[in-house]
Design a binder for these strands. Sequence first.
DNA 1: CTGCACTGGGATGGAAGGTG
DNA 2: CACCTTCCATCCCAGTGCAG
Length: 270
Amino acid sequence: MAPGARAGTGRVMWLTPERLFYAGLLGSPSVRTMGGLLIYVALRAPIRIRFDGGPWASTELAVVPAYMPHSVACDDRMICDLGLEAESIDLARLPSVIRGRAGPVDDAAFVRHVRQAHAYLSERGRELDLQADSFDQIFFGHALAPRRLDPRIEAVVQRIRNAPSATATAESCAASAHLSFSRFLHLFKEEVGTPFRSFRTWKRARSLLHYVTQDSNLAHVALDTGYPDSTHFSHSIRQVYGLKPSDIFAGSRKLALIGERVAVGDGMPG
DNA sequence: CTGCACTGGGATGGAAGGTG
DNA sequence: CACCTTCCATCCCAGTGCAG
C-alpha cells in the first residue's frame, strides 16, 4: 500500500480538500482547464504559459484563475504548482502576488519561498504531521481568507467535495438545499463562480489525484472515481489535465504523497 | 424566488483504432 | 493480447434569460 519513500526525486504531492501542492513531472499537456486557482512556479528552468492559443510567455511564476483554459510547458521535466480550490478562497482578499492576476507574475521572493518550501516538504514532509490548515501557513505565512458561501450552497459544495464520485444531480442538490431547481442553479453560479455541472466535473476529476500512485488498471480507477466507463474517464481527464490518464499514472510512479490521512470517496468515519 | 421555454453541450456507451 | 484512447451517435441534464 505505502509506496516507498523515495527521498531524492523531489517529486511530491500534498493534497487537502481545498489545497494542492504538486512538484513532479509535467509531461506534455495540451490545453487544460482546472477548477482551482493555479500558481505555477518554475523549479530548474523557466515555464512557458499561454492562454487561448495566444503567444507563449516565459516566466518563473504564473497565476491561472480557476476554470481558465491554458497551456503550460517547460524545458525541465519537473514543474511545481499550487492549487487553491476556487470556492474556498475570498478572491478579493488574496495575497497581492496572486490577487487579480492571470498570467506571468514577477515576484522573485515568492518563487524563492516556494522552492524552499518544496525542498523542505520533499525532505521532511512525510515525517511531519501536516494539517490541512498548515498549508497556507507554509506557502503564504498565514491562512488565506475563506470565501463565505450561502450556507445552503455551502452544504451542497461539501456534499460534492466529500463524495465526488457520487452522481448527485442538480435537482437532488436543489431539493436538499430547499431551493427550487431554477433558483439553485442561479445561486450556485453566483456563489461559487462556476456552473454546478463544471464544478461537479472538476471535483470528480480532482479526486483522481488520490489514486495516481496506486497500481491498478484504469478501468477500475474510472469506476472508483465515479466515471461510468473508461471512455468518459479518458475524455474527461484529458479535458481537465490536458493529459491522458495513462500518462498521468506513468508520471506519478515516484511521487510521494504527503498529508494523506483518510481515503476520500466513501463514507465518513463514526 | 419560482416557473417556463429554449438550447447547448456534457454525459453516455458501443465500436473501432491505437499502443506497449 | 490486454489495455487504453479516439470516434461517433444519441440523449437528456443543466445553463440561461425572462416574466411574474
